[in-house]
Amino acid sequence: MPLSGAMLAVSAYAELSTALDLGTGKAPQSLSRQMSLKNGTAAGQADRVFSDRRTLAASATEDLDLAGVLLDAFGSAITFARIKGLVIAAAAGNTNNVVVGAAASNPWATLLSSTGTVTLRPGAFLAVGTGTADATGYAVTAATADLLKIANSAGSTSVTYDIHIIGASA
């Protein structure tokens, strides 16, 4: 089943200001990136997507198998060979943090290395996109480098997070 389109956009804006003798000085600063992908497996293309809201019990962890275990919205198994976009967002109502990365075995290491992690505090999010000129993306190797670990940082309460993965099968 073809992917009819995918887009990932991130934008940041801030404005510094200071009082001057005869007015106010302002320095607006912004950074925006956007990636639109068409159906396929080459540069600027993707053909797989996984999206879910998940909850982990206190102190729980899960390894999301990026090669053959996750199911798409229609119940079909997804095998990613390359990840082109990833968004993970911790629920604002969480008490504990959501920790991403460092699976004990077969870690998906092309983004964070095999031991690297990112801690998402309540309400925080992580967004990564490869850009439309990148055909490689972040490689997934079935059975040896395909597990994305997600963990609840503490034993007091459960955590909820949303995840959206855009990638290619080849």
Rank of each mutant, 00 (worst) to 15 (best):
G25I: 09
A77R: 11
L64K: 12
I166E: 02
A9S: 15
D146R: 00
I163T: 04
T79D: 00
A145G: 07
D162S: 15
V140F: 01
A89F: 07
A60V: 01
A12R: 15
A135K: 08
A6V: 09
K84G: 03
A151E: 14
L16Y: 13
G85Q: 08
S32D: 14
T115W: 10
N106V: 15
V49A: 04
G40E: 08
G5I: 13
L126D: 04
R33Y: 12
A133T: 11
A142I: 07
K38T: 14
A6E: 07
A60S: 09
T119D: 12
W108A: 08
I88A: 04
A92M: 08
G129I: 10
A168L: 11
S169P: 01
S59A: 07
G101A: 10
A143F: 00
M7G: 03
N96K: 02
A109K: 13
E15S: 12
H164F: 03
G85D: 03
L8V: 14
N94H: 07
D162I: 09
L8Y: 14
N152H: 02
I83V: 15
T130H: 07
S30L: 09
A135V: 02
A27Q: 15
I165M: 08
S11M: 07
L31A: 12
W108P: 02
R121N: 14
V128I: 14
A127Y: 00
A77T: 00
A42G: 14
G129K: 13
T157D: 06
S113Q: 13
I166V: 08
L8A: 13
D52P: 00
S169D: 11
L3Q: 04
A6N: 08
I166R: 00
R33S: 13
T95F: 12
T61C: 10
A139W: 05
V159K: 03
G68L: 11
S51E: 05
